[in-house]
Structure formats: structure tokens, C-alpha cells
Computed example of a mutant assay.
Amino acid sequence: MQRFFLDIAYSGTAYHGWQIQDNAVSVQQKLNEALQKILRRDIETIGAGRTDTGVHAKQLYVHFDATGTLIPDADRFLHSLNALLPSDIAVRRLLPVATEAHARFDATQRSYEYHIHFNKDPFLLHKSWQIREIPDVEKMNLAAHYLLGKQDFGCFSKSNTQVFTNICTVKRAEWLWQDGKLVFHITADRFLRNMVRAIVGTLLDIGLKQKTPESILDVIQSKSRSQAGTSVPAHGLYLTEVIYPYITISS
């Protein structure tokens, strides 16, 4: 058996997240079904992480095992797989990797974006969150600076999640104006469940409600979800990049 990584992208609007659900359609379900039709055997994919309902991914790696002889031509395989997948899911690269390679545990860095716009735009429906008031971006970026480094981010985690630690190392956290939208960029070695959406909500409280940038320090030190801001809607969130030590970044 050969282990393969797939580099995929999807619009999450029509799906109840990445992970297979008992009574709802997920991205993983659609991908597994398409792989099974091509390879004519049960396939179990493992993703780099699980995105929630409505969240999008510009890049997510998954791994699966298959007999190498069943995939003699990567380009033809990708073409066939894309033909079977819905139009809102795409596979971009197929990479043979070592047998012990793992899409979730081997990832060393992940990046997300959160998109906000201010004027009604039908082309941003379910792709960006519209708010009315423009926040104080300078204050939000001052607050975001306090997120950098290795620390306990339990205050931004969804309650009752089964993780061994709330410690994460954030390498980038900043707001930028892009094509008339306000986009939050964040990169870390790992993320807790609901972490990015809670961070964005907390930063918007600082930008809109006259809170000081330093107030985010009290939120972090509290380690309490109730002290952080409300989670912003899922449809503005994008997983944008996953890094592995043995995979060359695609152009």
C-alpha cells in the first residue's frame, strides 16, 4: 500500500464542515465517495484539521492509502477525481509520501484568514461577513500583537473539547485592507476549536467598543471563554495554508 496526500480546496457553504457527520453532508463524505468510485475499495481520508459548518478552505491536505498500481498517472487521477466531485470541491495535487506521514499530526504550521466587508455585495454572500461600522484597525492590530508567541489560548477555545493542551504558538496576527475588505491573517503551529472566530470577535470588541488594546491581556490571562468576545459567523473564515516539513509549497 502507498500513502498519498491530496491538496484540496472547497467552499464550505453547502457542508456541515469537513468531518463526516451522521445526519448531514460533509466535505469528507463527498471526497471519500469519489475516491471509492475511482479506486473501487473503501477509502478513509484523514484531514489536516476539521473546519466547521460554513467555513471554507483554500488549502487542506488529507491523506489516504491505496495500492500504488491503481494510480499510475497522477494527472489522469486528479482529472477523474475532480469530475466526480461537486463543483464546490477541488483537488489540486496528489503527492506520494512515506507510509508513516500523517496529514494532521505532521503539520507544523497553519494559516487562516477572516474576511469582513461593509457594503452590500451579492458576490460576497456566504464568503465574507458584512458589518456596518468600520472598526479602529490600528487598535485591533495593537491588540493582535499581544497574541504573538507561545501561550495558553484556552479563553478562545470552544468548551468541552478533548485536547491535551491549550498552548499554541502564534507567529502572525494582523489586519490588512485588501480590495476594499478588511482581512484578518493569523498563523500558528496549531489552533483550538473555534479559536480564530473567537479571536476575531474579541478584536472587534476592541475596535468597535472603545476597549483598550491591552484589555486582550486580561482575556488571555483569564483562560475563560466567557471573558472573550462572541464568535463571529463561520462564513467569513478560510483555512488558507498548511505547512509540512517534507512538502514543497505550491505556487
Rank of each mutant, 00 (worst) to 15 (best):
residue 148 L to Y: 13
residue 108 T to D: 02
residue 71 I to R: 06
residue 95 L to Y: 14
residue 139 K to Y: 09
residue 136 D to N: 15
residue 151 Q to G: 14
residue 164 F to V: 12
residue 154 G to C: 13
residue 57 A to P: 04
residue 186 I to G: 03
residue 134 I to G: 00
residue 68 G to T: 06
residue 62 V to L: 12
residue 152 D to R: 09
residue 181 K to W: 04
residue 180 G to F: 06
residue 103 A to M: 10
residue 54 G to Q: 07
residue 53 T to H: 06
residue 168 C to L: 05
residue 107 A to H: 03
residue 168 C to I: 05
residue 68 G to L: 05
residue 113 E to H: 13
residue 114 Y to F: 00
residue 74 A to Y: 11
residue 104 R to Y: 08
residue 118 F to G: 00
residue 173 A to S: 12
residue 88 D to F: 09
residue 159 S to R: 15
residue 87 S to K: 14
residue 183 V to E: 11
residue 123 F to A: 11
residue 184 F to H: 03
residue 144 A to T: 07
residue 170 V to P: 08
residue 106 D to V: 01
residue 180 G to L: 05
residue 152 D to Y: 12
residue 100 E to C: 06
residue 142 L to G: 00
residue 172 R to I: 02
residue 137 V to L: 00
residue 57 A to R: 02
residue 122 P to D: 10
residue 113 E to L: 02
residue 77 F to N: 05
residue 116 I to N: 05
residue 163 V to G: 08
residue 106 D to G: 12
residue 98 A to E: 15
residue 147 L to A: 11
residue 135 P to W: 10
residue 124 L to F: 12
residue 86 P to L: 04
residue 77 F to H: 03
residue 83 A to N: 13
residue 61 Y to H: 13
residue 85 L to Q: 08
residue 94 L to H: 09
residue 60 L to W: 00
residue 63 H to G: 08
residue 70 L to N: 09
residue 56 H to F: 05
residue 156 F to M: 06
residue 166 N to Q: 13
residue 175 W to V: 00
residue 117 H to R: 07
residue 83 A to G: 11
residue 182 L to T: 07
residue 170 V to Y: 05
residue 177 W to C: 01
residue 67 T to H: 05
residue 56 H to S: 04
residue 88 D to C: 10
residue 140 M to I: 05
residue 73 D to W: 04
residue 109 Q to R: 10
residue 99 T to S: 15
residue 59 Q to R: 11
residue 182 L to I: 03
residue 145 H to A: 15
residue 188 A to E: 08
residue 160 N to K: 15
residue 58 K to H: 14
residue 184 F to D: 03
residue 185 H to F: 14
residue 72 P to S: 02
residue 153 F to V: 04
residue 166 N to F: 15
residue 131 I to Y: 09
residue 158 K to H: 12
residue 116 I to R: 03
residue 125 L to S: 11
residue 114 Y to N: 00
residue 177 W to G: 02
